[in-house]
Every structure is written in C-alpha cells, then in structure tokens.
Amino acid sequence: MASIISFTFREAVADVEYKGYLIPKGWKVLPLFRNIHHNPDIFSDPRKFDPSRFEVSPKPNTFMPFGSGVHACPGNELAKLEMLIVTHHLVSNFRYVV
C-alpha cells in the first residue's frame, strides 16, 4: 500500500519541460513515490488492498517500492526474500477457512 520511503531527492541532469513547467538542469526534484502508487490513472481503486492487481506486471516506473536505478534500496532483494519466507510459513503452518 505504501513505500517505507515516501519521497527522495534527485537532481535534474538536463533541462526538462513537464506539463508546461521548465525544470532547469541542476535543480533538485522530489519524486513522491506514494503519489505514484496511489494514482488512479495507473491503479484502479488505488487505496484498496488488492494483490491481484499485480497478476499483470505494472508499467515501468509506476510501482517503485524500493526506488529504481542506481539509487535503488540495497536491501530490496533481502526484503523480497523475507516476504517469501513469511508467506511460506503462513501457508505451511495455518489452515484457512473461507
């Protein structure tokens, strides 16, 4: 539902025009990951917990819980492994009734 980090700082490496605004090279920008993850143009009903939305891989740069590129979280592979281990134990050690 949300990243542990809501935002990060980056520096524009070139002049960029976005929706009529100029972001000059060298300016600091603040990508808001939480806003990306809750964008209804990208995810239908983004505030609803719905793991099935990931049955099809999201478009690039629309789901970034660990950041991306050279600045990605160094612990992302460990976090994914931990999630798999927890899921394994939940499925293996409990019986679920619907």
Rank of each mutant, 00 (worst) to 15 (best):
V13P: 06
D50C: 14
M1N: 11
E82W: 01
S92H: 09
P51E: 15
F94Q: 06
F7Y: 07
F49T: 05
F66H: 14
C73Y: 03
I23R: 00
E77P: 01
T87H: 05
D15Q: 06
F94T: 12
F49Y: 15
L90I: 04
S52L: 03
L22G: 04
G26S: 08
E55W: 06
F94A: 05
L30M: 13
F49I: 11
N76T: 02
G75P: 01
H37M: 05
A12P: 02
S6Q: 09
N39I: 05
E77F: 08
A14E: 10
G67I: 08
N39L: 03
S68E: 13
R53Q: 06
S92K: 11
E55L: 11
D41Y: 04
Y18V: 12
A79C: 03
L84R: 15
S52N: 08
R53G: 04
A72F: 11
A14F: 14
F9S: 03
Y96L: 01
L22V: 07
S6N: 10
L32P: 00
F33E: 01
G20Q: 01
H37N: 05
I23Y: 04
F49A: 06
T62Y: 10
K80A: 02
L22F: 11
V97F: 09
N76Y: 12
E82P: 00
D45Q: 14
H37P: 01
T8V: 14
S52H: 02
I42L: 04
T87M: 14
N76L: 08
T62E: 08
H37W: 04
V97S: 13
N35G: 06
S68V: 14
V13W: 14
S52C: 05
S44G: 13
F33W: 12
F54S: 06
S6G: 08
G75D: 03
T87C: 07
F66G: 02
S57K: 13
E55I: 06
V70R: 15
F7M: 08
G26M: 10
A12D: 13
P74W: 05
V13M: 14
V16T: 11
N35S: 12
K59S: 12
F33Y: 13
E17C: 09
R95Y: 15
H71W: 13
S44R: 08
L81K: 09
N39Q: 02
G69T: 02
F7E: 07
L78W: 12
F66Y: 14
A12H: 06
G20A: 02
R53V: 07
E11Y: 09
L30K: 10
A2S: 15
R34M: 07
K48Q: 13
G75C: 05
N93A: 05
S44H: 09
A2I: 15
P65T: 02
L84P: 00
I36W: 07
I36C: 12
E82R: 03
V70W: 09
K28H: 10
G67N: 10
M1F: 08
A72D: 12
G26F: 10
G67A: 07
F9M: 05
P51V: 12
C73T: 05
Y21I: 03
A79K: 04
M83S: 09
N39E: 04
P24E: 07
Y21R: 14
P31E: 09
G75V: 02
H37C: 04
H89M: 03
M1D: 15
P60Y: 14
G67P: 03
Y18A: 14
V91N: 03
F49V: 15
K48E: 13
N93F: 13
I85H: 01
N39P: 01
L84Y: 10
P24F: 12
S3D: 12
V70K: 13
R47D: 07
P51T: 13
K48M: 15
